[in-house]
Amino acid sequence: MSGRTRAGLASARALVQALAYLAPSLLVFAVFVFYPLVRNAQLSLYDTTPFGDLSRFAGAGNYAELLRSGEFLGSLRVTVLFAVYTVPAGLVLGLPLALLANRRMRGIAAFRTAYSFTIAVSIAAAALIWEWMFDPNVGILNYLLSLAHGPRIGWLTDPHWALPAVAATTVWQSLGFNVVVLLAALQGVPDELVEAARIDGSGQWAVFRHVIVPAISPALFFVGVVATLGVLQSFGQIHILTQGGPVGATNAIVYSIYRNAFFNFRFGLAAAQAMVLFVLVLAFTTLQFAVFERWVSYG
């Protein structure tokens, strides 16, 4: 009896201790995440004045307006497409670069720096660089195309090309981060493991497929999740390159939220969109954990 009480006391003490350690981060989360989340949920149920004050209770009115508006459904579609264009491409391009950078040779530091330098480039700067390259008249892309007698493409003004163009900018900018994370993981793969596989007669591909990929699978998973979360919240490159156009082809959801809240002064509507985005991100992340984490070996 007394033993159990003592155990209970001990666990209560442990709980208090844990809470004490967690308090600073809980406080920060409460102020900057939980409270705004609750207020945002409230805001989404109201009509608002252009100053952001609650004007009148609208119930599900804002949500109903979203579902009725083709623009919102279009922005959902664009957001999902954007993730599909960028996340796999970032992994598929990042991994070979990381493998190359993982070689041991003279001067490799220069290559490592080159492959990962975009981590130091802000998305706004990246967008400005690419905007020049995309320029239909004076940009280098169309110049190269003209050398090959190709057509002149309105990269940012043709609805078919605009989203791929913004995605290319995003992939380029995110490559640096991907390379850094994957390279770190590759360097953590024990040499004995690779050597043992070689001695057993495995070829390059088999070693890569059955030794290296499983060994770095936590990093691959991490990059995938982080990239998805990031891409679902993309804003800067869209704001700079296309402002959501042409004809809504790049009107991803965060950009649409920005326009409604800080340009159209429709805070209630924007809050409702933000709630939908929240659910979307939650669903995506849950899905990733449910489906892909099975292949991750933390051993």
């Binding site: 320029d135 004076v138 940012l156 003004t157 402002q243």
Partner: peptide, 12 residues
């Protein structure tokens, strides 16, 4: 059609 930003038409 240079798109929306006037910066692009000015550049051209």
């Amino acid at each position: 059609n240079p798109g929306r930003p006037t910066a692009a038409s000015q550049r051209a």
